[in-house]
Design a protein around this nucleic acid. Sequence first.
DNA 1: GTCTATATTAAGATAGAC
DNA 2: GTCTATCTTAATATAGAC
Lengths: 184, 184
Amino acid sequence: MAHSTISDEQLLIRSAGVFRTYGFEGTSLARLSEATGLEKASLYHRFPGGKEQIALAVAQGTHAWLRQNVFEPLKEPGDPRKKLRTAIEQLRACYDDGTLPCAFEVLSLAGGSPELAGALKDALQAWIKAFTDIAKESGLPSAEARKRAEQAIIQIEGSLIVGRVLGDTKAFRKSLDELPALLS
Amino acid sequence: MAHSTISDEQLLIRSAGVFRTYGFEGTSLARLSEATGLEKASLYHRFPGGKEQIALAVAQGTHAWLRQNVFEPLKEPGDPRKKLRTAIEQLRACYDDGTLPCAFEVLSLAGGSPELAGALKDALQAWIKAFTDIAKESGLPSAEARKRAEQAIIQIEGSLIVGRVLGDTKAFRKSLDELPALLS
DNA sequence: GTCTATATTAAGATAGAC
DNA sequence: GTCTATCTTAATATAGAC
């Protein structure tokens, strides 16, 4: 491999793909090296903490991506139903139509550091809050909105797993299609 | 470690605990050895195919457990609501009140063999069928029963993940509590 | 900042004694 | 059927050249 440069953003996106495909324990520096085009020593230069630090950066990057593409757009002025449809399309792309596992799932299994677990929890709580707020904006009472928000994320996560086992993304697509009715 | 004997059933139960906790890739022969009390060479004596064969046996053992403790009891004569309540308590115990990940989830990530994927798919389809049948027995039309059955399993899987990330089993318990209304 | 080369540890897997 | 001992490969991690 000749000299290679890759932006921090691209590096994290490709690393996220590896972690989401193989899980935290199944991700090796060799696989990260192949996916990023950087030799292992170069990965250590950028992330002295190795795999654990990369996983933490992936979790924080996932939170940042959700903030920019889902949470913030949902806060802008406009029809809540329309904003939600846009957010759903972002999520559909994020999960590659249901074929790519969720970072929350694969990074939360035993093996990760407490910092990683904390970052995942922060990001998921922010997601629940974003969905709760849009449901409230659509007219649902506070407690019901919160319930529906959790239910929506549970459905996304669950349908990804059922779809993965059955080899069929139908369940995931149905879950996304039901979100507008669930969150309003 | 002195000589040790352990039944096939106990061996699979303890191995399942390791796989479900650390995932397929995170499960090493060393961890299986520690959990079962057998040296690595002894595990290879019983399972010449190594980790892959043990994972396959765990998947088949999970299917057998579900058949015996959930699917078959649901088929016996009696009030469907009462049978369902009993099945739910079995599932609650199986997931250790929501603290133990699901074998379908952790064994379906990339890394496993096609045989393993096939065994998981068979078991999950049987689970969907068992829930569909009990919903039909409760009076739901066939198509709706099938939809609710998938929804029930999606909720269980999703709530396990959300609960794991948030460090709170409330979502899982709520999912189980909602099953009777969902499947009748 | 990236590379080649290497050290160290752990994982998968087997041989052969008991 | 289980054990100790060993082999081979792969993983984490570092040193030092460019």
